[in-house]
Design a protein around this nucleic acid. Sequence first.
DNA 1: TCTGTATGGGGAA
DNA 2: TCCCCCTACAGAT
Length: 401
Amino acid sequence: MPEGPELHLASLYIKRMCEGVVFTGAVRKSEVSKSPDVPFTWEAYSITATSRGKEVMLTLTPADGDGKRRGAKGEAAKPMDIVFRFGMSGSFKMTSVDDLPKHAHLCFYTKEKPQRVMSFVDTRRFGTWHPNGTWQAARGPCVLFEYQSFRQNVLSHLSNNAFDRPICEVLLNQKYFNGIGNYLRAEILYRLNIPPFECARTVLTGLDLEDVCETQQQISDTKKCVKQEMPDLLRLCHLVPLEVVSLGGKGYDPEKADYSDFKAWLQCYYVDGMKSVRDHNGRTMWFSGNPGPMAPKDSKSPRAKKRVKKEDDHDYTDKKKTARSRSGGSTKKRIKKETVAKTLKKEKEAEPVSKRAEKTKKSKALAHEKSVSQNRKRSRAVVQAEGSQMENRRITRQSSK
DNA sequence: TCTGTATGGGGAA
DNA sequence: TCCCCCTACAGAT
């Protein structure tokens, strides 16, 4: 579920579910998880949460007046912060003990009867947590809640070689864009019609250090702001995630019933008619129009690349053996080579968009079409239309300099 | 049964 | 820059 908006929605969910609820006992970790144990055991404690970019911090606070002022090992009663990163599939869920989700890896038990559990659920186990943790120092300010410092952090470091790369790849750099992930980068660049593989520095040079819309309320009031001034790329890094937050629900999470709202909100990511290529890190970039000058020449999937490499190695070994033995190669090897050649040819002919994506998109297209046409009539359409013209003119100016 | 793909990011070379 | 961590699912074979 996890980009900036989903992490924030998770923190809101935790706060809502844990408000006034007393938790008890030890925090329990699944056997299979490689994340650390959480050394926290109290007769009574409360839970609250906050988010920053792609991190969520849980604060466990021992309750006053429960008669026990010391923990199981005699430690003083002080709160513990646990910092979570969600990986590709992390989320929090409050359930009954009987309904504990299959992939619950860290569990907090309530003191009620019947007992309930707040658990960190993470199917793929790419998520991590850090007891007594702090916000990760290497991550930049939150695009949602530290907008001005986020903006200044980006614009004051443009000379850094991190900005030599394509804008779509820099948008995933959490040192500068804490909270932006793969669907947000697609949506943001699409709104401004910025070629994803344009050089980041070219796109960002010339933006004002201070945004004219200074207060969050002003910024959040899209209509008001758009009428006053065009939103630039950095403001959209703030506004677009805010839109997802305002959708409520659970954002990007196909398992949830309210996923349809989110799908309808998407204008570019996984949308019918959009193009997709692999960026230099092997992640799929969705876009329309011109990919930009720094587009990778070879956009094979990481696994396809690996396979081709393996087969190349295999082929090389075969050739060496053949040369040594002067045998000319066995029938088996010839068939293998033909298969490899066919595979390569297939891949060459294949569209950048996978067949699976095509089919998924087709089935999605009908439902999507209806609501997108409505959505686009809203303020975002204004943002996109006006913004893209301005942005294109600006980028053209930058490029020609 | 095999292959490709998925909202992220740490660490080795 | 590449490899790896891991599960689930869709579609191809």
